[in-house]
Design a protein around this nucleic acid. Structure first.
Length: 377
DNA sequence: AATGCGGGGCC
DNA sequence: GGCCCAGCATT
């Protein structure tokens, strides 16, 4: 007997009945989603990347715009990264966009622009992990591979009364074995989608709709009255607070935008220069120091513009934004790949973090207010 | 195995 | 305010 590193779960005596009930339910109740109107592997792939840690209703408008802008894998591969990030702006986890872009170029170079119908090849694509590989292969090519996401883990935790922490990799691997064993022959795509759709529509995180569930009669958690207390999931750590400064720095009617490094938080996005503030430091103090250090600019601070509080998964920005202008005689940094002087109305052409979009909105409101005030005078 | 990585919607 | 979401890469 082969030893398995992951946990082993038993699909029980009703596996075939469960699978059949799920397929029947899915045939009737599945939502009409944009990515279900085609079996094109590129479209399926795009949808699966967007849907990582992201709700269907959030993804829908991004997906529609994306396909209008990048209708084919080749079109995506040939687009500049700036345009790709702009199309992703606001969706979060920006490495998804950078990896998808780079993987598309990879598919053009290595597979002639067609997503390979090959598990080994798909698994090597950047940004494609076990779930996404399984989803693309099963939905686009109907290959019998599991696609276990948060929905499926929640459903399985209840259906089979599994009390292991779903955050543990070993638990997910065990559930992948379980999912594989349940796939009906020739129905992988529909079955995997049925599992996720049931998790999304019926076996919801709170208040599961067990009365409407097609597999309620097989559900061990429901039988034990424990459906509300599963799945078991470790609590996330509290986000760490970080004070941040952002400077709207004017010079001859333009403001300074700088590009964040490719890797790390908000990688590749543009922002108003500044950065982390030492604890207790004001926006003015932090800007004087950091802008001089990084760009050699001497500043004259004009005043406070706005405060933005922004919560990430693992940290909280307390962002303070000031306006300033370049002091007379100060050196002026030249434009480069990571530095631009732009007029206020051009800011929205650049992909910005949401927190900095709010600073830009405050700036435009302020400028508009000044203009109206002048006209009234 | 643990951590970094967004943003929004719902209770 | 907390929780969750069609996860992945890196260490």
């Amino acid at each position: 007997m082969k030893r398995t590193k992951h946990r082993a779960y038993d699909d029980g005596p009703h596996a075939a009945n469960i699978a059949g009930a799920l397929l029947n339910w899915f045939a009737v109740h599945q939502r009409d989603l944009p990515w279900r109107r085609s079996r094109d592997a590129y479209r399926i792939w795009v949808s699966e990347i967007m849907l990582q840690q992201t709700r269907v209703e959030t993804v829908r408008p991004y997906y529609e715009r994306w396909l209008a802008q990048f209708p084919t894998l080749t079109a995506l591969a040939e687009a500049p990264q700036e345009q790709v990030l702009k199309a992703w702006e606001g969706l979060g986890y920006y490495s998804r966009a950078r990896n998808l872009h780079s993987a598309a170029q990879d598919v053009v170079a290595r597979y002639g622009g067609e997503v390979p119908d090959d598990p080994d090849a798909v698994a090597t694509l950047k940004g494609v992990g076990p779930y996404t590989a399984g989803a693309v292969l099963s939905i686009a090519f109907n290959r019998s591979v599991p696609a276990v996401d948060g929905n499926v883990m929640r459903l399985f935790s209840r259906l089979f009364l599994i009390e292991d922490d779903i955050m543990q990799p070993a638990t997910r691997q065990g559930m992948e074995q379980l999912a594989l064993a349940l796939i009906p022959a020739g129905q992988a795509g529909n079955f995997n989608q049925a599992l996720m759709e049931l998790g999304a529509l019926v076996c919801s995180p709170t208040s599961p709709k067990c009365l409407a569930c097609p597999v309620a009669e097989y559900c061990q958690a429901l039988a034990a009255g424990r459906q509300e207390s599963l799945p078991v999931k470790a609590k996330a750590k509290a986000p760490r607070p970080v004070d941040v400064a952002a400077g709207v720095i004017f010079h001859e009617g333009r403001v300074l935008l700088v590009r964040r490094p490719e890797e790390g938080l908000l990688g590749g996005l543009w922002e108003f220069p500044g950065g982390e503030r030492p604890a207790g430091a004001t926006c003015e103090q932090a800007l004087h120091q950091r802008i001089a250090e990084s760009y050699g600019i001497e500043l004259e601070i004009e005043g406070h513009l706005t405060d933005v509080r922004h919560v990430f998964t693992h940290l909280v920005w307390n962002l303070a934004a000031c306006t300033a202008r370049v002091a007379p005689g100060s050196p002026i940094p030249e434009e480069s790949e990571t530095l631009r002087w732009v007029t206020p109305d051009q800011i929205s052409r650049y992909p910005l973090p949401v927190a900095h979009q709010k600073v830009a909105a405050a700036l435009l409101a302020c400028l508009s207010g000044n203009r109206q005030a002048k006209m009234r005078r």
